[in-house]
Design a protein around this nucleic acid. Structure first.
Lengths: 195, 195
DNA sequence: AAGAAAAGCTAAAAAACATTAGCTTTATTA
DNA sequence: TAATAAAGCTAATGTTTTTTAGCTTTTCTT
């Protein structure tokens, strides 16, 4: 991994934890193992690092949630659906890279219009679209009752989104939150899945 | 309004818009109409302003959402429920004080454990408890089907919470978001209200 | 291997803020 | 109304952090 890339990597870690303003150029340099002025051989300044990092994070997030492959095959049963969904959520909550990008976005979403748009697109629209497709597929198989798949996806996904960012803020409640999420998903199935 | 209070007021406005780190003592002073050093006659420093402001905001928020009176009387019909709920949401979205406090909390929730806890308590638990009580009341009247009121409240409230913060980030989509919220609430009624 | 380019370092400058010192004006109150 | 306290101002200081200057070492290229 090149120094240039390691700078972005460490910057993301630090920005996610302490925010952009809460992170010094010196801290980033230290993590990379160089002195602060050397950063300027790779980037024009702190803000330049931020911009490169946003480009990068956007691509990475797209890779993880934007593509077709992440829908996977449409679940065949209720238990299948619950299991796959919980797996995806646990991955989202625990994967270090996704976690960092999410924490970064939540903290810095107001810094620019671009960040605001990314937050909306990823946190709300991206995951929702994915579940709209999944629910659609399951409706076709007769597993869900006929309804508007987008509305159902919203009801499924949005509490989860809130709880995940709560878990980011208060990691001591992680397990409790995971349990709550599973209960929510099962209740969702009770209401909307065909008997 | 005393200078001391006006400082808090302007500080909140600026913190909500540009964040704590993004706001200079000088900017606050300018809005108040004094010079920066004069602030120090009223507060020990910038952080002291922040703390006073948090105390203040917490009280104000409590006043608006924490008390019994804001549940109001339990709605008598589906249309009544939709109307009252939408009114409350529009108030939350548009009332300048509530709006400022919310934007401030969203931005600064990671600054301290206290702020993280406030965010959770207000944004998630507070409103949810209110709707749990309302739905409970409506179940007693036979307006809702029998179910766990807390789970229903979550499903009702959490997409709204997300959409409201989206509207804060991207005010150009406010109307679209309001429409989406109303559709969501009506769908919620379709699913859970007795025929 | 010589020369050039890239990446690093130390030391210093510059910038951006918060805060303090010391004095003046305004408001209170005895 | 005189004394005192509160609130304000300008000028300066302190601090923290980003950025530049100038030099050295390493790495790549021919």
């Amino acid at each position: 991994m090149s120094t240039k890339d390691r700078i972005l990597d460490e910057a993301l870690t630090l920005f996610a934890e302490n925010g952009y303003d809460g992170t010094g150029v010196e801290q980033i340099a230290e993590k990379v193992g160089i002195k602060a002025p050397s950063l300027y051989k790779h980037y024009k300044g702190k803000e330049d690092i931020l911009n490169a990092l946003i480009d990068n994070a956007e691509a990475r997030y797209e890779e993880s949630f934007g593509s077709e492959q992440h829908i996977g095959k449409i679940p065949e049963s209720r238990e299948d659906f619950v299991r796959v969904t919980m797996e995806r959520i646990l991955f989202t909550m625990r994967d270090p890279m996704i976690r960092k990008i999410r924490k970064f976005l939540v903290q810095e979403q107001f810094r620019s219009d671009r960040l605001a748009a990314i937050t909306t697109r990823h946190q709300l629209e991206g995951v929702q679209k994915m579940y709209t497709r999944i629910i659609e597929g399951m409706m076709e198989k007769g597993l869900f009752v006929k309804d508007d798949p987008a509305l159902l996806a919203t009801e499924l996904v949005s509490p989860v989104v809130l709880w995940i960012s709560q878990a980011d803020r208060q990691p001591q409640f992680e397990q409790e939150i995971i349990d709550r999420i599973e209960r929510h998903i099962r209740h969702f199935c009770d209401v909307y899945m065909s008997a």
